[in-house]
């Protein structure tokens, strides 16, 4: 893992209309690193990802992605920096078939996986390629939401609650996929409620509270700080 910085978020404030949600987020992610944003519901984790994509209202501060300042960019420009976003609600389009969903996001970088490779990784999607996207099961929809950003060549993946509401066997499969992506040097930000899912995958964990980073915990410190996390997250 190289130590170069891939994402630097500093003094990030974000708003939805009048409500001030993020109060100066500060964190960095190195190239090829997997970090997890942990925290209670409403702490601002999902908003952080949405703010990174330019999908909130007003934003101030700084977001540097692979050396480019993105705070004033429109969402499509941010994506074109090589960012793949998987939203919490999965965002599968009901007006598109499975395959159309998969092929929808345009290329934003080189070296994306081919459709064949993705169908091999997610055989269910190949079987159901002509079904309406929202006819898929929850697990299949999550696979599709993940697969379609792996096709585009995005190197920074923002994944919001991908394990939420899924059967344990599917969560396990997702864990394997994240591990596989780590070996391929993807940079990953995991927003997770499910601590047990995120903990073994993340190189570092950030605890988000009231729209700020409350603590940073490296994988190696995890065992020593379980009490703190338990108190904070109720895990």
């Amino acid at each position: 893992m190289s130590a170069t910085e891939y994402l630097r978020v500093s003094k990030l404030h974000a708003f939805y209309g009048e409500s001030h949600i993020l109060h100066g987020m500060d964190f960095t992610v190195r190239r090829g690193e997997c970090v997890s944003l942990l925290g209670r519901n409403g702490a601002g984790r999902t908003t952080t990802l949405r703010a990174l994509m330019g999908l909130t209202g007003k934003r101030t501060g700084s977001i540097v992605i692979n050396g480019r300042e993105a705070i004033d960019m429109a969402p499509h420009k941010i994506a074109q920096l090589g960012v793949g976003y998987c939203p919490e609600e999965r965002g599968i389009y009901s007006s598109l078939t499975t395959e159309e969903n998969l092929l929808l996001p345009p290329r934003v970088g080189s070296g994306g996986m081919s459709v064949e490779e993705l169908y091999e990784m997610f055989p269910n999607l190949a079987e159901r390629r002509h079904s309406q996207g929202t006819r898929l099961s929850g697990g299949e929809q999550q696979m599709l939401a993940l697969a379609r950003i792996l096709r585009t060549g995005a190197r920074l993946l923002l994944l919001d609650e991908i394990s939420e509401g899924l059967a344990p066997v599917i969560v396990q499969k997702l864990g394997e996929i994240i591990r596989e992506l780590k070996t391929r040097d993807y940079t990953i930000v995991l927003v997770e409620q499910n601590f047990r899912f995120a903990a073994p995958l993340a190189d570092r964990m950030f605890v988000v509270e009231h729209g700020q980073i409350a603590a940073e915990i490296a994988q190696s410190e995890l065992a020593g700080r379980m009490d703190y996390l338990q108190e904070l997250l109720g895990v």
Binding site: M53, L55, A79, G91, S95, L96, L104, P105, I149, T152
Partner: peptide, 17 residues
């Protein structure tokens, strides 16, 4: 497909680039 996606969920569609 772009049009249908943009009609259904413009924000996410833009976030795909």
């Amino acid at each position: 497909a772009y049009l249908r996606a943009g009609t259904e969920n413009p924000g996410l569609t833009q976030a795909f680039g």
